[in-house]
C-alpha cells in the first residue's frame, strides 16, 4: 500500500506497524517522534499502531541547533 512519509510517497506492506516502518527505513527508534495524520503517536504505541493506505506520517528527530 502507499503511504506518505515526510512528504514523500512510500510503499509499505499492508498491516505494517509504525515500528516496522521505522525499521524498514533504517531509522533509530530511540531518537524520533512520529505524527500519524497530524496526531502524535506515543512512543509506547509504535509497535501496535497499524498503518492504513494513504496514511500521512511525519518522522522527526533532533538535529544541531541553537
Amino acid at each position: 500500500m502507499q503511504i506518505n512519509v515526510n512528504g514523500e510517497k512510500k510503499e509499505c506492506p499492508t498491516g505494517s506497524s509504525v515500528s516496522k516502518l521505522l525499521e524498514s527505513l533504517d531509522i533509530d527508534k530511540r531518537y524520533v517522534a512520529v505524527e500519524l495524520n497530524h496526531k502524535i503517536v506515543p512512543r509506547i504505541q509504535f509497535s501496535e499502531k497499524m498503518l492504513q493506505e494513504n496514511d500521512s506520517l511525519e518522522i522527526v528527530t533532533f538535529v544541531g541547533g541553537g
Binding site: L25, A33, I59, V60, T61, F62, V63
Partner: peptide, 11 residues
C-alpha cells in the same frame, strides 16, 4: 545544550 527538531532523513 540546545537542539532543533527536524524531519528525519528517510532516503
Amino acid at each position: 545544550i540546545t537542539v532543533a527538531v527536524r524531519r528525519a532523513n528517510i532516503g
